[in-house]
Structures are given as C-alpha cells and as structure tokens.
Design a protein around this nucleic acid. Structure first.
Length: 939
RNA sequence: GGGCCUAUAGCUCAGUUGGUUAGAGCGCACGCCUGAUAAGCGUGAGGUCGAUAGUUCAAAUCUAUCUAGGCCCA
C-alpha cells in the first residue's frame, strides 16, 4: 500500500475550507520574531551602530563599578598594514575573555594598544619619500612616521571593531604618545640608575655603500661568488704524542678571506674526533671524518694518521696567526659542523654572529678593524685602507707568500645583500648599548619570576625559561630614526660616555610635554640648563647619542605606562594573551623590563595561542597563495563566523582555516540559530511573570531538560574559567542538536501546538523554553556577540529583565531546583529505549509500513523490571516516541522487544495522531477527542 | 643544527592515573516529513589512533627513532 493511499483513506478532511481554517487556526504554531536567514554581513554593521549609539562599552564599565578587577593587558599590534587572520584570532580570544569575565561578575576592561615606533614604518615612509624624491631629514621623517602610524591605527581600529570586539577604542594606549614615550625614557633611566646599561661591541650587518647598520629584515639573500680557501695555522702549543721536531698546523676553511686579519680563534666541536695527519714534513690537524675528502681535494695522496684527539682535548691550545703578530687559540663550539670545510672553524668574533657569541665565552674581543666604508683601518698591517671585498685577493696573496695557503677555489652561494642598494654586505662589530643579564642578577631573578607565573599551556614555562637561561645580554640600541632615543652623552673632550639617571629623567620630563622629538630637534644647551660637566674630564662639550631604543623595550614597558598609570587598571596584570612567538617577544621583553626595575613579572598568568595555518596545516604565505583574509571572510560569512571559528578550534595548537572549515562553521551556526529561533517562536504568547510554572510543577520532560541545562551551564562556565572555548562551542552545539532539536523540541511540538494555549502542560514547556533561551543566550553571548544580542532583543519582551543588551547581563545563576539526578537517570533510560524504538520505526519505514512516526503504534515487550519502570510513563510514551499509540506488554524474560504496526484508528486532522476516538464529537467530526475538547474550550 | 609544540574518522573536537568491540557533533549516503520549511526527524556507512621499533599480560595513552607541520633561535 502506498503511503499516500494510506493517508487519504484514513484522514477525514473537513468538507469546508472554513472548517479547515478554523482547525488550523486553533493550533498554536510558532511565530518567529527573528529571521531564519542571518544575513550576517549586512546585519552586523547595524548592530555595531546600535552598540556605538548606546555606548555599550561605557554601560558595561558603569555596571562593573565596584566589581573585583580582572586585568587582561593587551599586547600592542604593530601599527602597519591591515589586520590578518592571526590578529583577528588574538583580538577575538581577548574579547571572549573580557566579555565572559564581565558576565562572571568582574570589572574587566579592555584597553587596546598599538606599537608605533620601529623599522617597518620607517621603511615604508622612507620608500615613499624616495619615490617622491624628498630628501631624508630625521625630524621630518619622524613626523611622517607618526602620521603613518596614526593612519593604520585608525584602519586597524575599525577592523577590530568590525569583529565585535568591545573596548576603550577612543582612548587606546599608543607607544608614541608623549606620556608613553616619557615612560620609556624613565624606565630606561631606572636601568641606568641600577647600573644595568653598558656600551659594548656587537657584530651587525653593515652596508658599506649605504654606511649603515642593517636589521635582519633589511637583508636579502642572493647568489654571490666568493673565494673559498683552505689555510693552515701553525700550532705553537706542544701536543703530547706528536713528534716535537715536526711542525704542526691546524687547517681551516673560509669563504671570506678578508676576515683572516681579524681571526682570533679556531673553533672545534668538543665531541668530534680530530686527526693529526703526517703530510710530507708537516703534521696537519683536521676533523677525522673530513680527512680523506679534504686531503684528496688538495691532491695529497700520501698521508699517515699519527693520532686522533677529541675536540674537547684540544681546548685552549695556541696557534700563531699565519702572517700577523698574534695568537689564535683553539676553542670549542657546538655550531661547528662537518658539512663543509675542515671541522676547524676560522673564528673572527667581530665578523660573525656565532663567532661573536662563542667569543664572549672565551673573553675574545669583537675585533673588527674596519671603518664605516668597509676599509681596513690603520691598525691592519699590509691591507690598511683597502676595501674588504677588494682585499680578498691581497689576503690570499699574502697567505700564499707565507706558505700557509693550501687551496683556492671559487664558490657560488647565497650571500646577504643590502635591501636598498643590493650590494653585498658585511658583518661588522659595532658599538651598541646593552642591558646586562648579570648585573643585579637580572637573569637569575627573571628565571625565578618565570616560576611564579602560570603559563597556559604549561610548556610555555619551559620555552621561555630556556630562552632566558641562554640568551645573551639585551642589545637595546638601534641605528634608526623612528623611536625613542637613548639618552646618553658623548664627551667631545675625553671621548668618554656620560650616562646618568638624573639627566635621563630631566629629558623624560621634556619628552612628556613635547614628545621624544625634543632630543632630536633641540640643541643640548636647550635640553640641559645648566649643562652637566663630564665626570671624567670636567668638560662641557657633548655630542648627543643618536641611537634609538629597541622597540621591544617600548612595548616591554607597557605594564608601567598603562597598567600603573591608568587608574581603572591595576598592576600586575592577571593575564597576557598572545601568540606563542611572544615568548621571545613581548612576554620576554616585558618580563626583563619588569624584573629589572621591579623584581617581579608584570603578569600573573600568560596564555598563548598558535598560528593560523591553511587547511593542510601549512603556514600562510603569498607564494603558496593560501592566505585567508578576515575582510573576505566577513564579507562572505560575517564576523560572527570568524568568532565562531575562533571558538570552535583549539587555539593552543596551530589553528587551521579553509573554505571547508568555514562551510562547516556556517552549518553549525545555522543549527544554533535555528534552535533559538524555534524556541523564541514558541514563546510569543508567554511572559515569565504571568505564565511561568514553578519547577516543582513542571512536567518531567521539562524538568529533565532543565537538569541537562544546569549540567551544560556548569560545564560551559568552567570552560570559560579555563579559557577552553572550543569546549563551549562543542558542548552547546551538541546540546542544541542532540538534546534539544532531535529530542526535546521535537517531542514538545505536539504539546506546544495542539494543547490549549493556556494549558498547564503547554505553559510548563514554555517555561522550559524560556529558561533554555535565558541561560544559553547568555552563555553564548561572549562568543556569538551579534547573534545573541539579536536573540536577546527578541527574547526580552517575555522577560522581566531590564538589561537592554545581552552584554549587560551576567551569566544566569542556575537554581538548585533545576538539578535532579534521579529524574535524569530515569529519562536517560527512557532515551535509550527511545533509541531502540527509532531503529524499529526506521525498519518499518523501509518496509513501507509507515511514513511519519505518527503513523505507527509501538508495542514494547519488556521484562518485569522494565515493565514496572515504563508503567509510570505509559501515558507519555507516545509523546516521547512521537507515535500514535504505545502498548506495553510483559515478556517472558527478554529485556526489550519492539514491534511496530500501523496505528489503529483514524488520523486526527488537528494533531495528526491516529486515534480511535476521531469523529466522536459531533461538532468537530474530523478530530480526536483531545482536540475536540480544546476546540470546544476555545470556541 | 638547537629549544618548545602538534599529528585520533572527510571536517572540528573527546578520549581521566596504559585495561572490554576507539567516542561525539558536523558532513556524507539512504529514507521520512512538509504545522522550525533556503527548516525538522530517522537509519547507516566511515578511523586501528602520522610511521617504525621497543617497554608491558595489556598502549591512541609510556620510551626511542623517523616523517610531516608550526613557533622561536642559529
């Protein structure tokens, strides 16, 4: 039999249209107050305007007056370019926390900040000026940089607001504001006062044609032909076990012959095995593993290995420089490899980063006898005045002359070049300012402070601990323009440096009023009145230090400039929250700055998130073409989907994003939205004050869902507490799909639609819906900030609540009456049986015995125990299973058997149940007894 | 090369101190409904837990190595 036939045959249809309409009108069908289609990208801006007009953030602040403070201190993004997915992720996570902490009863404000000084902006501005052929003048450049930063702060501010992030956007902190700049100077002064600042040497990239230091970001690698030479250094020290009458040499290899004059050491790996090989009348030392390769490369055929040594055994033996009157000692370093060369590495601490670092361990100076043009100074015999790249040949010739050159080749390799003039650059030791890690035991104190902080995830502790434990002194100077100057004076009379906290603070006061520009714009006698005297020679002729501070120092003082200076905030912060790269960045600089000046960390806990990667887990890059931009996602899906993305993924690891994931999120979003829409739609004739039913009087199924709601609420609140946002999304989404949509709401339809509108059972269900919306909307408000606001506006008329925005509410307190373990146990058992019934219904559906489940009668054949249990629910079982009739039968022991047959009786036109009492009422011949009763009472 | 981290069904996530046939939601397939309808309901098929080797009576869960990927250094 076909389904249609079955229906036609058994469903009496009212003969007149009027009667049909009357019956349909008597149903309490939902009246939706919010549209099914979210249309987020168009509606969100309206919501933003509303929030702006009502000054929502100010209202939140007002409401949190007197609440305990929770301080999340914003790490300042760099004021350059548009925001990307990573910045969006970071700001949204912060917004989740700010909003949820407020709703949990805290005064949690958000003061956003921007990092304004620094190279990238200076670069951009410099480029613009070059293009327009405007000459570079430092003071003018600085003004243009400021304007440039302002422009991007405005752009980013709008982009952040568009994401639904609340905060003090009208009054953010900027590292270039005068008072902030003054704080930077003062904090620097504190280090000066404690003796932590010193002038030292450090090799940096140097462009000899531009005569300037280059930052890493200014270096481009390109192919370059270099000489490749093997050189022997005579070993002066006697080595036990080697014949004393034979000269011994250590073999090195280098591609920068011009650095040979600056050689101070030869580095060996402590664990490698080195061989002493007799070649003719000499003994050569080189790594055992490279022996055959190197010697055959030189055409040496006959050799004999006399002995082998561990690198560690040769530490501090002394070699003689091949042609200069100085020694070169053997040192140990882990960076030595066997990939190229001889395993004995020519070390010039003034010309290489690794050489410099290992040199520090052996107290070797960063010797770099070059001038700004890249020419050897008078200090260097034979080559004084020569440009280093030209000197390569001269050095090779000299080595040849003294008989220490073993081999010359040419090598094509990637070599650093200047981003500006494209010429090859050199590594050159320069004078730089440092903060010592050892003065006042900064390192030790920082390590102790790290132990006091809660790192989330916990491995953050090890990561930053290892960094601080091993890092060199903090180089705080940059040879740049756009930043805060290092306040120091160079005595023109004696050449010494005048570094004094008192002077620093005098300048800080000027900076507070006029900005850091005063240092560059004003003459020294305008800045200092009276002019200090040089403590070394008494002279009063000074030159200003022109270096600026590392921008990490700028942002590192934010705890002092923001937390300690804004009355609404508090020091230290409860939380810093940034990407995991900031263990080296802001967490690190803030820690050192704070420990150096205040002995403790500026934060109690630090939360890190991973990086945004594409669907395959690969990082986003222009060359891969896999970049997803927030603007495009907002346009296509809405900011709400971006927020949901942040909430759905576990941000501790890398966070994937792809069209696939976004599609999935929109599906998840729709499920949540429709669930709320349906619940609201069924509250149209309900207000809490007039119609609510007390928990004790509610139907069991409604009380069961309240029990579930209490569980969900508790779980979600704990997750907010632990910043486990993905748990929140998954918990609520599953709750909406499984508990609500597939069970509770589906079962409720009959009662909501069919019952008398004022009936207790309908009011009971509506009370259930009311609590669901009230609790869930608040729980989701920090995440779905736009949608829950929309829900709240639709919901408020049914409530006594005065809050005009969901963001002004607190999380709902769950009355203890919602929880009922025994009742929940019973309902979970019912749900298990329901599951079994569903399976059998599906079989019947497949066999074309039924279509809709209401076509069915279900017979449960159960054992004694189950029978007794189900007997209590006998009248409700048809509702729970959404079938027309349930028959209970005792089995002879089998726990549960389900059979499905077509329901007896006739289909009621109103409630669609098959009932045997359809037609018994004379006035309404097409409906069942229950419906007839309702119709009568409505008439 | 070093420090830290990640790797469970197509996707997003669960899997407590190692212990029965590895779970959920979504998606997918098939079907139902047409009174949540650019919705809703049901059933079902999908992983042997990145790979390998160990420890163990027993491992997704511990160890080592490797592979792929991420951040930070070099």
């Amino acid at each position: 039999m076909k389904q249609k036939d079955l229906c036609d045959k058994h469903t009496p249809i009212s003969t007149t249209l009027e009667a049909r309409m009357k019956i349909k009108d008597s149903l309490n069908l939902p009246k939706s107050s919010i549209p099914m289609k979210a249309n987020l990208s168009q509606r969100e801006p309206q919501m933003l305007t509303r929030w702006e007009d009502t000054k929502i953030y100010d209202q939140i602040i007002e409401k949190s007056e007197g609440h305990p403070k929770f301080i999340l201190h914003d790490g300042p993004p760099y004021a350059n370019g548009h925001i990307h997915m990573g910045t969006a992720l970071n700001k949204i996570l912060k917004d989740f926390i700010i909003k949820s902490r407020f709703m949990a009863g805290f005064d949690s404000r958000y003061v956003p900040g921007w990092d304004c000084h620094g190279l990238p902006i200076e670069h951009q501005v410099e480029k613009d000026l070059k293009a327009k052929k405007i000459p570079l003048v430092k003071t003018d450049l600085r003004k243009r940089c400021r304007t440039y930063a302002e422009k991007f702060i405005d752009i980013q501010r709008e982009e952040f607001k568009r994401l639904g992030v609340f905060g003090d956007w009208d009054n953010p902190y900027l590292t270039m504001k005068f008072p902030y700049e003054a704080t930077i100077v003062r904090e620097f002064g504190k280090f000066v006062e404690k003796g932590g600042v010193y002038l030292g040497e450090k090799p940096v990239y140097w462009c000899a044609s531009c005569k300037t230091a280059l930052a890493d970001a200014e270096v481009e690698y390109a192919e370059h032909r270099s000489p490749s030479i093997y050189v022997k250094f005579p070993l002066v020290s006697k080595v036990p076990g080697l014949p004393e009458d034979t000269p011994v040499y250590v073999l090195i290899w280098t591609t920068t012959p011009w650095t040979i004059p600056a050689n101070l050491a030869i580095a060996l790996h402590p664990d490698f095995e080195y061989a002493a090989v007799r070649v003719g009348g000499e003994i050569w030392i080189l790594a055992g593993e490279l022996r055959d390769l190197v010697l055959s490369g030189m055409g040496v055929k006959n050799y004999e290995t006399l002995a082998t040594f561990k690198g560690a055994d040769m530490e501090r033996l002394v070699c003689r420089h091949p042609f200069l009157e100085k020694d070169s000692i053997l040192i140990l370093a882990d960076h030595v490899t066997l990939e190229a060369g001889t395993g004995c590495v020519h070390t010039a601490p003034g010309h290489g980063q690794e050489d410099y670092e290992v040199g520090l361990k052996y107290d070797l100076p960063a010797y770099a006898p070059l001038d700004d043009d890249g020419r050897f100074t008078e200090d260097v015999p034979f080559f004084a005045g020569q440009f280093v790249f030209d000197a390569n040949q001269a050095v090779i010739a000299k080595l040849e002359e003294v008989g220490c050159l073993l081999k010359v080749e040419e090598l094509e390799h990637a070599y650093p070049h200047c981003w500006r003039c494209k010429s090859p650059i050199i590594f050159r030791s320069t004078r730089q300012w440092f903060i010592s890690m050892e003065t006042n035991d900064l390192r030790g104190k920082a390590l102790k402070a790290i132990d006091q902080v809660r790192w989330i995830p916990a491995w953050g502790h090890d990561r930053i601990y290892n960094m601080v434990e091993n890092r060199p002194d903090w180089c705080i100077s940059r040879q740049r323009s756009w930043g805060v100057p290092i306040i120091a004076l160079h005595c023109e009379d004696c050449g010494r440096v005048l570094l004094d906290a008192g002077l620093v603070n005098r300048v800080a006061d000027l900076v507070e009023k006029n900005g850091a520009d005063v240092w560059f714009e004003k003459d020294l006698n305008e800045i200092f009145d009276p002019m200090p005297a040089c403590p070394h020679c008494g002279g009063k002729n000074f030159r200003k230090e022109t270096d600026i501070l590392d921008v990490w120092f700028d942002s590192g003082v934010s705890h002092a400039a923001v937390l300690q200076q804004r009355p609404e905030l508090r020091w230290p912060a409860d939380l810093y929250l940034e990407g995991s790269d900031q263990h080296r960045g802001w967490f690190h600089s803030s820690l050192l700055e704070s420990v150096g000046t205040r002995d403790t960390a500026p934060y109690k806990s630090v939360l890190t998130h991973g990086f945004v990667v594409d669907g395959e887990g690969k990082k986003m890059s222009k060359s891969l073409g896999n970049i997803v931009a927030p603007g495009e996602v907002i346009k296509k899906y809405g900011a709400e989907i971006v927020r949901l993305w942040v909430a759905a993924e576990d941000y501790r690891n890398d966070i994937k994003i792809s069209q696939d994931i976004l599609k999935q999120l929109t599906d998840g979003y729709r499920r949540i939205r429709n669930t709320f829409r349906f619940m609201l739609g069924n509250l149209y004739d309900f207000t809490f004050e007039k119609n609510a039913v007390s928990v004790a009087e509610m139907a069991e199924i409604d009380r069961y869902i309240l029990h579930r709601l209490a569980y969900i609420s508790n779980r979600v609140l704990k997750a907010y507490e632990a910043y486990d946002f993905h748990v929140i999304y998954h918990t609520i989404h599953t709750f909406c799909a499984v508990d609500l949509s597939a069970f509770y709401l589906d079962v409720l339809k009959d009662r909501l639609y069919v019952s008398h509108p004022e009936s207790p059972e309908r009011r009971s269900s509506q009370t259930g819906l009311y609590h669901l919306v009230n609790v869930l909307a608040r729980l989701l408000a920090p995440i779905l900030a736009f949608t829950m606001e929309e829900i709240w506006q639709a919901f408020r008329p049914f409530t006594p609540f005065e809050e005009a925005s969901v963001h002004l509410t607190a999380f709902a307190e769950i009355p203890s009456s919602f929880e009922n373990r025994d009742l929940a146990d019973r309902w979970e058992r019912l749900l298990e049986i329901r599951q079994e019934v569903s399976k059998v219904l599906e079989e019947a559906r497949k066999n074309k015995e039924i279509g809709h489940s209401l076509d069915a009668q279900v017979t449960l054949t159960v054992n004694e125990k189950t029978y007794d249990f189900l007997k209590d629910y006998e009248v409700e079982l048809d509702d729970i299973f959404i079938v027309s009739r349930v028959v209970l039968e005792k089995s002879d022991g089998a726990p549960l058997a389900v059979t499905v047959t077509p329901a007896p009786g006739v289909k009621c036109e109103r409630c669609w149940h098959y009932k045997t009492d359809v037609g018994t009422d004379g006035e309404f011949p097409t409906v069942c007894g229950r419906c007839a009763e309702v119709l009568c009472s409505l008439a």
